[in-house]
């Protein structure tokens, strides 16, 4: 039972990550590979504040959001000077910089050893001690993000960012400040990733830089590629599918070393199949 609850918790953390990345990549058309870095900022902020400074969980989440808003705002301003593939390469570099900071700011982040014994969350005075209670918290978070995404994508903001993706020049000519909208989409997306990171660190109670590498960003990107861009159903499906796939492989009875390699091979095969047969992904509404 604990195993199923664990999987559900991981899914409920990764669904918001996929949805928030889709806001940026699928809806706004910004191919960013720095989502794991933003996720890491939230995770490290919560870990450092709750463990070292004894700050409450919710306060640490709020500070994590603040840190991520500042970092993503500055990063977006820098990246906005780049276009197309160069933007993606810039975001690629940003993830590497964040990873290097997590790895080398040893007095703060614990360096490669990471931070362990991160305190369990206490929400409104109630300690979240059992995994079932944590599942409830993470499910509430996931549902709130789904509702928020539903709201924002059906609002005028949702239309505008899609218009920017389809034709930036036309959107500018109609009076919209494209740079502002891109920055806000980036900041919103990063903030949701930050909250997911805070939840992750307090749930696992141990974090190290390996959870926030470039590979993690690509892993998140894989979710929305499989599910399909600009689709909430797609992002949810992609996250569930990519999380469950290696778990299902456990029951095939392959030795662990082969299962790990097989997982990568299967991801690759699915991506190639989708690129060939269904470039919009399973539920996608948009082909980049």
């Amino acid at each position: 039972m604990d195993y199923i609850i664990h999987i559900l918790i991981i899914i409920s953390i990764f669904v918001p990550l996929a949805l928030s990345l889709d806001l940026l990549v699928g809806r706004t058309g910004i191919l960013s590979i720095t989502h794991a870095g933003m996720y890491g900022l939230g995770a490290y902020t919560t870990a450092i504040l709750t463990k070292t400074y004894g700050v409450s969980f919710l306060t640490s989440v709020a500070v994590g959001i603040l840190v991520t808003v500042c970092a993503s705002y500055m990063l977006s301003k820098v990246l906005s000077r780049l276009k197309g593939d160069y933007y993606t390469l810039g975001s690629f570099g940003a993830n590497i910089i964040l990873f290097s900071l997590f790895m080398n700011l040893t007095p703060l982040t614990g360096g490669p050893m990471g931070i362990f014994n991160i305190p369990q969350a206490v929400i409104f005075g109630i300690p979240v001690t059992s995994t079932l209670a944590f599942l409830l918290v993470s499910l509430v978070f996931m549902c709130l993000v789904i509702i928020f995404m539903q709201m924002i994508t059906t609002s005028r903001f949702g239309l505008i960012i899609q218009a920017i993706r389809d034709d930036t020049l036309a959107t500018e000519v109609f009076g919209y400040n494209v740079k502002d909208f891109k920055t806000v989409a980036f900041v919103i997306s990063a903030s949701i990733a930050s909250i997911a990171g805070s939840l992750y660190s307090t749930y696992i109670s141990f974090i190290d830089p390996s959870s926030f590498t470039l590979n993690e960003s690509i892993f998140m990107l894989t979710m929305i590629i499989i599910g399909g861009f600009a689709s909430k159903r797609g992002a949810i499906f992609g996250a569930v599918f990519v999380i469950l796939l290696p778990e299902l492989l456990r029951f095939v009875g392959l030795p662990d070393s082969i299962a790990a390699q097989l997982r990568v091979a299967i991801y690759g095969a699915i991506l190639m199949y989708l690129m060939y047969k269904k470039p919009t992904g399973v539920f996608g509404n948009y082909t980049p």
Partner: peptide
Amino acid sequence: KLWSNLTVLESFLMAQKSESWLYSI
């Protein structure tokens, strides 16, 4: 130069009046 993934109605709604990101949310 059109917003090809928006519907005709959405395109016309978008064009009516430009607005700030905060108001648009």
